[in-house]
Amino acid sequence: MTDTSQQLTGQQALGQQGVGEPVPQRRAPIGDTPQRRAMLKRLKRRPSVKGSLIALFLIVVIGLTLPFFAPQNPYDLTSFSVMDNRLAPGSESFEGTRFLLGTDQQGRDMLSAIFYGLRVSLLVGLVSTGLALVIGVCVGLVAAVMGGRIEAMLMRLVDFILGFPTILVALVMLAMIGRGVDKVILAIVVVQWANYARIMRSAALSERRREYVEAAFNLGYGKPRVMFRHIMPNSLNAVLVVATVQIASAITLEATLSFLGVGVPVTQPSLGLLVASGFDYLMSGDYWISLYPGIALLVLIFSLNLVGDRLRTALDPKRS
């Protein structure tokens, strides 16, 4: 925390990674055009973005190197004791270890639970967004290039899905297939891919009319090649920006579902479930069980949104 130079290099590494990361194609020159580099520079100059990037970086590092940071493994039932339940922040345990953020009703260390919860939340957010992105991009591309009946059918399906409130669809799905991290991811993918499909289609439609696409068809390239090698790399920008913001909304959705009791199982608490489990004790003054996971969730979503929003501004040529 005190070594600023290390933080800066870490933040730079994340800045480049964060933009290059969700690009699902090989050898894409997306990372190294001069415009892209200038954009990254603009992005990193803003202090609020700097703060968010640092926070995100710390969260990712903590999520990846959990055993070093977490004093306790909240998944391991033998590592904590019910004797320590609902201890206030800073108090000592039965065996003498200190709980910086207190414990929950089962005697779990809140700090460790939050770290593990962050990992679950991040995993759900990233994986579901990634899968939804891949599906949405493919559907949008196919709709834009094929046109006709295929396009009409795909886009009506998209309209159908977007016509329902997301939370309702996810709730119904989970009520049918049960709880679990994989099932939550599936539910989020089902409700989110349509967003990407719609954006991708409109971006691909405008790219399709450009002469280089005509030239590609004229050179006798097949439709899949033109779609994935020519149209896709040129229309991904818009979708990627939306995706960064959508990671945050996927995490929120997961937290909401877990809070409502249909999300992840109790044995693998996510941030939303932690907030939910503390909810019962809020009135008896044990605020920490809900408050600290809530703050962690807030910081995570706030930084993701800020970075995504600034990314959109930086990518918009009219405002640079």
Binding site: E211, Y212, L219, H230
Partner: peptide, 16 residues
């Protein structure tokens, strides 16, 4: 083969 009018639009900007 065809030569296009707009040299700014007729080459894929992401290909070398």
């Amino acid at each position: 083969q065809m030569i296009f009018q707009d040299p700014y639009a007729s080459l894929n900007p992401r290909q070398r």
